[in-house]
């Protein structure tokens, strides 16, 4: 990216785009459009299921929108003692 395009990114349209991308990736979870959070949740579930047996409902994936960045919160409840699967 050139210096010049860095400058034009500062124009309000760039801010608008960034805000929209964050907002919509959040809204699509609640309104049914497939999106990042839903995809992430499925893939995280798949990875975990390879090693530990967990209840699907005990895996929470949440995107928190911030001003300059978002945080992805992944909360996985693993029962004790963890029923570890043996790697094949």
């Amino acid at each position: 990216m050139s210096l010049l395009s860095l400058f034009s990114r500062k124009a309000s349209a760039g801010v608008a785009r960034d805000r929209l991308q964050i907002l919509l990736s959040h809204e699509r979870t609640t309104t049914g459009r497939s999106d990042l959070v839903a995809i992430l949740r499925e893939e995280i579930l798949a990875v975990i299921a390879k090693h530990v047996t967990v209840d699907r409902d005990k895996v929470q994936v949440k995107m928190d929108r911030g001003e300059s960045y978002s945080t992805l919160e992944v909360d996985i409840e693993i029962p004790l003692p963890a029923p570890v699967k043996m790697a094949v």
Partner: peptide
């Protein structure tokens, strides 16, 4: 207005 960066760019709307 698009050239001045005041309006969302076409490619951004398309991407979103």
């Amino acid at each position: 207005r698009a050239a001045r960066g005041e309006m969302l760019k076409t490619e951004d709307v398309l991407e979103i």
